[in-house]
Design a protein around this nucleic acid. Structure first.
Lengths: 209, 209
DNA sequence: TCCGTTGGTGGACAGAGTGTACGGACAGCG
DNA sequence: CGCTGTCCGTACACTCTGTCCACCAACGGA
């Protein structure tokens, strides 16, 4: 059936993609195991991906270039993860909000460490900064739409300024989640998420109607 | 009158401090003028401070060490700046809150760019991370006290979990302020700060009593 | 004022990492 | 089968780091 000939990608192309993936995964592995991206040499990275330093430069211009690719991929996944909350267009309960935020957190947290690297790199690499800003902006956009449509539908406080409110709330969530990485205890995590849900509830939904 | 002999510091000590200050200021100057800290060489830095590279290493172990000193100094100033809001122990109006946050923002924003560097460096330098965490924690502590004492005094919603609420609000303010750097327009800034005041008001004070 | 001490300076050094170039080797492909 | 694409090792020039040291200016005590 799926013979190599039928596959649109040739074997060589598949090998290319595999090496590329190995490099991307190597960064995640090294980064999550205590090493820090900034002092990670290309040599070490290539070694972790079972390839050579010179090959690295075939696939990426430099480390920042690799990080850009990574950011785009993670960004797409983040947007998918936020859908359950932000795409809601009907009145919901405080408890439902809590559950949605919890699901969002569960999906977000595994990526938080690499996102921290992205934000860090953004301060000194213009292209990564652009990518990171797009990511942030698209989250704010989504929440802004949620607020506007929720106001119209009557389940969001209609007196809110949609854009700035969305900006602050997304700031809170993003910054807070990055810090939550360090929280090991499940009970403490629960407490934090519950408090977050209270704040969001209070900010957006409590004063509706 | 104030002869050199009467001065507790000798001339040499004063010169020492002056060079140190020149180096610290050089970082701020170079950082704010578009250059990025990560790719800033010690050579360039010493040059900007009108001193030599070898002298740099007399004063600081490395760039991260310098950043740590800077962080501590900025941290102390930040705490002073937050006092008007956080040290309030009595009921106040929504308008007063807005004014206090505006003053806080005005004091914070000039430092936001270097703080961004601090947070970026924190992801890969353990000591800077510690310093940055202390800074963050002390802000959370102060807000937590504010919430607890405000609850007792009756002007803060007593059902709040003080610690996590403080954590989220400080996250929001810190992350948001770092982004506000890019906001040039006064009217837009006004809108943002007003919205922030609404959120804080709603979160802490609206449900008191 | 004199002179010993202090401390900034420039230069040299080894070590590490970067980004580029190129030839050899090996496997995929026609 | 021979051609071609791709990975690998090696080498190179370059930049930056952190350390060391000898030199010398000027500071400050006597």
């Amino acid at each position: 059936m799926a013979s190599p000939a039928n596959n649109p990608t040739t074997r060589r192309e598949r090998q290319r993609l595999e090496i590329r993936d190995r490099l991307l995964e190597a960064v995640l592995r090294l980064n999550s195991s205590g090493n820090d991206f900034a002092s990670l040499s290309v040599e070490r990275l290539a070694q972790e991906a079972s390839t050579s330093r010179s090959t690295f430069y075939v696939y990426f211009e430099d480390k920042a270039d690799l990080l850009r690719s990574l950011t785009v991929e993670i960004g797409e996944e983040l947007e998918r993860m936020a859908v359950p909350w932000l795409e809601i267009r009907a009145r919901h309960t405080r408890q439902q909000l809590g559950e949605m935020l919890e699901r969002f957190a569960t999906a977000y947290l595994p990526h938080a460490d690499i996102l921290a690297v992205v934000f860090a790199t953004a301060t000194y690499d213009a292209e990564v900064r652009q990518t990171a800003q797009n990511l942030f902006r698209s989250q704010v956009d989504a929440l802004q739409r949620h607020i506007i449509e929720g106001s119209a539908a009557g389940f969001v406080d209609p007196t809110l300024e949609a854009r700035p409110t969305a900006f602050w709330l997304i700031s809170m969530i993003e910054r807070g989640f990055n810090d939550m990485l360090r929280v090991r205890e499940d009970s403490e995590r629960k407490l934090l998420l519950d408090s977050l849900a209270d704040l969001v509830w209070q900010a957006l939904y409590a004063l509706a109607d």
